[in-house]
């Protein structure tokens, strides 16, 4: 099985440890990754989408065209990339006029958008294509006794009608929970599970308000389930929840810290990756939690 790896800006430049985790985990589950050489930004909603629909679709279509030339689908660990690419595909496939305009632009660079390849989110991709049983068999270290709090990531869930691997009920997401349980972790729910983390455009527009959302979320997680780790399905949530706790501590808003990992980092760890490497960019070190687990296997 082979799939294109759409890396995404935040993963490539902010969290290369996450990129490493994906490159570690996927081949070990029997999925070969293609680099999609020459890929660009998805583009994210603050740039071309806020200027021109056709320009947005054209940049998205170029990324799709690279995958189509290789006959592959794309996977991404970033909800923003996923959401942007899902939408551009929807616009181009439902509106012939837009697709024609896009292909006229793509002609200039010798590419064409055909509408074959799809973009898929990495976690649901593994859930559907590999399955929980095979993941259970492949893991070296299990997370028994570990409590994790989930943060699925908005665009992984919504708009569900445009997605290929949608949840049965996006307001009660199951995929990420089942994936964590497959690794042995216990995954209790908490009241603000579906709340937004505050990353993205809100953080660049107004940090205070963005922190306010993160604080609500983290406080709810801590007071209701007090987990060992927060596990996200989205690279933006990962960055937001990992970095804001430091700010909130400085402002005396919280007096604790909970390490945050992307599901792919946790999976890579369970498959035997060096925990130091696949979490190397984390501000809040998950070392104690992960090394405790490793000690059991010594």
């Amino acid at each position: 099985m082979k799939v294109g790896f759409f890396i995404g800006c935040n993963t490539a430049f902010n969290r290369p440890d996450l990129e490493l985790a994906v490159r570690y985990a996927f081949p070990r589950l029997g999925v070969e990754l293609d680099d999609l050489i020459g890929q660009s930004c998805c583009p994210t909603s603050g740039t071309m989408p806020s200027i021109d629909l056709v320009g947005w679709c054209a940049l998205g279509a170029r990324n799709y065209a690279i995958a189509e030339e290789r006959g592959l689908d794309m996977i991404t660990v970033c909800s923003t990339c996923f959401g942007s690419l899902v939408r551009t595909r929807y616009y181009m496939l439902t509106n012939r006029g837009i697709q024609k305009q896009v292909n006229r632009i793509l002609q200039e660079i010798g590419r064409e958008y055909k509408g074959i390849s799809r973009v898929r989110h990495a976690t649901p991709y593994l859930y559907k294509e590999i399955g929980l049983e095979k993941i259970k068999e492949a893991v070296k270290y299990r997370l028994d006794g570990l409590t994790v709090a989930l943060q699925p990531g908005c665009l992984t869930l919504w708009p569900s009608q445009l997605q290929a691997d949608k949840e049965n009920d996006p307001f009660h997401p199951q995929i990420l929970r089942e994936m964590c349980e497959a690794l042995g972790a216990s995954v209790p729910g908490y009241s603000r599970l579906l709340d937004c983390c505050g990353m993205g455009a809100m953080r660049s527009t107004d940090m205070e308000r963005s922190f306010y959302l993160a604080e609500r979320k983290i406080t709810s997680i801590r007071t209701e389930i007090n987990p060992h780790l927060i596990v996200t399905g989205c690279s933006s949530c990962l960055i937001q929840l990992d970095t804001t706790q430091e700010f909130l501590q400085k402002r005396r808003r919280i007096y604790y810290e909970i390490p945050v990992l992307h599901y792919m980092q946790l999976l890579a760890f369970c498959l035997g990756a060096d925990p130091e490497a696949v979490t190397s960019m984390s501000r809040i070190r998950p070392d104690r939690v992960l090394l405790d687990l490793l000690l059991r296997y010594q």
Partner: peptide, 12 residues
């Protein structure tokens, strides 16, 4: 409008 998270909850 520039702080919109593009989360698509509204669309859903």
């Amino acid at each position: 409008i520039w702080a919109c998270q593009s989360c698509n909850r509204c669309t859903e």
